[in-house]
C-alpha cells in the first residue's frame, strides 16, 4: 500500500501506586492535585463482564455495580510514568480490588480520624496482599482528632507501618506522602533482596 511504516514511539515503564480509603476521605483530591493531566475516571464492574460477553445473549444482572476509579499520571523521567489509582476499598469489591492493586509499588491509605473504621478493609487487603502501605491521615481541619499513636492502636497496624498526616489539597504534601510510600517500599525491597 505504500503507507510509511511509522516508527513506533517508545512506551514508558509504568509504575503504580494505589490510593485507597473510605468515601469522602480525599482520594479524588489527592490524585487530582499531583497529576500532570486532569484526573480521569475509569469504571470497573464488580462482576466479571468478560465472563458474560462470551455467552451470547446473556444479560448481566441489573445489580452489577460499577465502581469509579480515579486515576492520574506523573511523568517521573524520560522513561518512567507513575500511575495513581484511587479507589474506595470495600470488602464487597474484592475481585476488583485485586485487579487494581496487583503489581503496585505500594499504597497510600487515606484516613479521616472521625471515621477510622472506613479504612479497615483497605488495611486488611494490603496486609494480606503484602503490598507496602502507609497510613496517611488527612488533616481536614488542620488538627488531629486523635494522636497518631492512638490511630495506630485503633487500626492495629504493626510498628513498621508508617503513619503520617497530610493535606490532600496540597501538592507538596501529597508528594511527601507518596515519597513515604516509596521509602517504605524501598526498605521492604532492600530487606528482601
Amino acid at each position: 500500500m505504500g503507507y510509511p511504516q511509522s516508527h513506533e514511539p517508545a512506551a514508558p515503564t509504568p509504575i503504580k501506586i494505589v490510593v485507597a480509603g473510605g468515601f469522602g476521605v480525599g482520594k479524588t483530591t489527592t490524585v487530582g492535585v499531583i497529576s500532570d493531566t486532569p484526573p480521569l475516571t475509569t469504571e470497573a464492574a464488580m462482576t466479571d463482564v468478560a465472563a458474560h460477553v462470551d455467552r451470547t445473549g446473556d444479560v448481566p444482572d441489573k445489580t452489577t455495580t460499577t465502581v469509579a476509579i480515579d486515576f492520574g499520571t506523573i511523568r517521573l523521567d524520560q522513561g518512567l510514568k507513575l500511575y495513581l489509582f484511587g479507589t474506595p476499598g470495600q470488602d464487597r469489591f474484592g475481585f476488583m480490588w485485586h485487579d487494581i492493586c496487583v503489581g503496585a509499588l505500594g499504597a497510600l491509605v487515606i484516613v479521616d480520624t472521625r471515621r477510622l473504621d472506613d479504612c479497615y478493609p483497605a488495611v486488611d487487603y494490603f496486609e494480606q496482599a503484602r503490598i507496602p502501605f502507609v497510613i496517611a491521615v488527612n488533616l481536614f481541619h488542620g488538627r488531629l482528632a486523635h494522636s497518631l499513636e492512638e490511630v495506630r492502636w485503633a487500626l492495629a497496624v504493626n510498628g513498621d507501618t508508617p503513619l503520617t498526616t497530610f493535606d490532600a489539597r496540597s501538592r507538596q504534601s501529597v508528594r511527601d506522602a507518596l515519597l513515604t510510600v516509596c521509602r517504605h517500599a524501598l526498605q521492604r525491597a532492600t530487606a528482601a533482596a
Binding site: T13, I15, L76, D77, A104, G106, L179, L186, A189
Partner: peptide, 14 residues
C-alpha cells in the same frame, strides 16, 4: 515494583 533501583528512580522523580 520490588526492584530497589526502580523504586529509587521513582523517589528521584517524585
Amino acid at each position: 515494583a520490588t526492584d530497589p533501583a526502580m523504586i529509587e528512580r521513582v523517589i528521584r522523580g517524585l
